[in-house]
Nucleic acid binder design. Sequence first.
DNA 1: CGGCGAGTTGAACGTAATCAATTGTCGTGG
DNA 2: CCACGACAATTGATTACGTTCAACTCGCCG
Lengths: 232, 232
Amino acid sequence: MTPCDVCEVRDYALCATLGLEREQFIRLGRQMTLPKGRTLMWEGQESMLVANVVEGALMLSTCSGDGQEQIVGVVYPSDFIGRPFGSESPHNVTALTDSRVCVFSRSVFDGFVRKHPEMEHHLLQRTLDELDRARKWMVLLGRMSAEQRVATFLVDISRRLAHVKPEGECAPLERFALPLDRQQIANVLGLTIETVSRQLSALKRDGVLALPDRRTVEIHDRKRLEAIAQAE
Amino acid sequence: MTPCDVCEVRDYALCATLGLEREQFIRLGRQMTLPKGRTLMWEGQESMLVANVVEGALMLSTCSGDGQEQIVGVVYPSDFIGRPFGSESPHNVTALTDSRVCVFSRSVFDGFVRKHPEMEHHLLQRTLDELDRARKWMVLLGRMSAEQRVATFLVDISRRLAHVKPEGECAPLERFALPLDRQQIANVLGLTIETVSRQLSALKRDGVLALPDRRTVEIHDRKRLEAIAQAE
DNA sequence: CGGCGAGTTGAACGTAATCAATTGTCGTGG
DNA sequence: CCACGACAATTGATTACGTTCAACTCGCCG
């Protein structure tokens, strides 16, 4: 029995495309657990690994010339991470929560994918989706007010986390634990920690949501939250 | 004789991957000229076309909920545009200058690509590169000052335009015509037209560059420009 | 109980947006 | 060729939003 037999994301991740060759593929990778805060890949480093997320959440981040961090993506179970067919990793990949990933050597992975067009097609689909998502986020960073950014972030994450939940559940969550702390939220939104805090407080004051503890969000008035988020 | 026989980008665009099947492929597409300002695809519209850029420059743009435009990409000859394997176009595609593109029906293109893994691989490579570029731009939008944004924009475009030039020439250009007007630059950088203008004036005042007319840029002190741009 | 880090709140500041006026450029027709 | 109008771009004055700096609160663990 392999870890894949009980893998939570086997039907959603990249490997779901494989039929009989799955056996072959899984022998190439291995599961790894990452404690919260551990960095799996470094920006600019020779890109040696790719991976599927099995459990947890990780962030992709880069630093601007003067050292400011910008988070350029957050990934969840069944998402793919790493940069195939390229020499260096374009960003850091760091665990936001304790996580489990299924890693492959990049060269081995590249070789396998090139021999399995179905899988390469799936990878292309994922990459196109990621690109759409990244470009949507550019609108947020380029054009939205702090209030809109925070609202959009909450709407987005409540939807993404819903897909992570056991089977079927797909309605956006009304109560969830943020995998990011305030500083990280600020780094996603291109704001400062103080501004994020103020906007969250304002939303709480207006009864749009509650913050029972610093990691938990309860959305009470999704309609209003979405109205603030506007862009979509 | 087909237009492809004299195509300027035949060795760089997606079709360069094809060997003997090239003949087959080119029969599926047709060249089109687009006057400056013409929109080829609309955001949200059913995605019917994909295309290669042969000549000119086009922008990809989306609107935030309250109608503000954000340019999420600029494409040049040999670049690929459109959203294969997806139902709707995620952004507008509009000619910045008079342009020539080589268009394909999306369904026909999708079918062809699925049968030609080499081509699909090339498309994946391009998409991965675009994703890297988009994420780099997120740092600019999230973390850079107006001055840094304008400087970064100029450094970037002078490099991109160099690759468009006839054969070989790859050093960044020190003198070039902007394919975008001030409003469009503002929409790329997430700034207002006034701020862009002020920053350009400041760079001129400091002797970093000259602006002989409103479309032309002459970089006099690239070192300094790059120092201001910092992030990279 | 004390100390520490994360988060919140407040006050002052600064950058870019906004509003407004002026200059510059280009195309058209006299 | 010049005059004019329309639009693009620049420049200036003011405002507003988010940042910065600083104080304070809260929860947690020794």
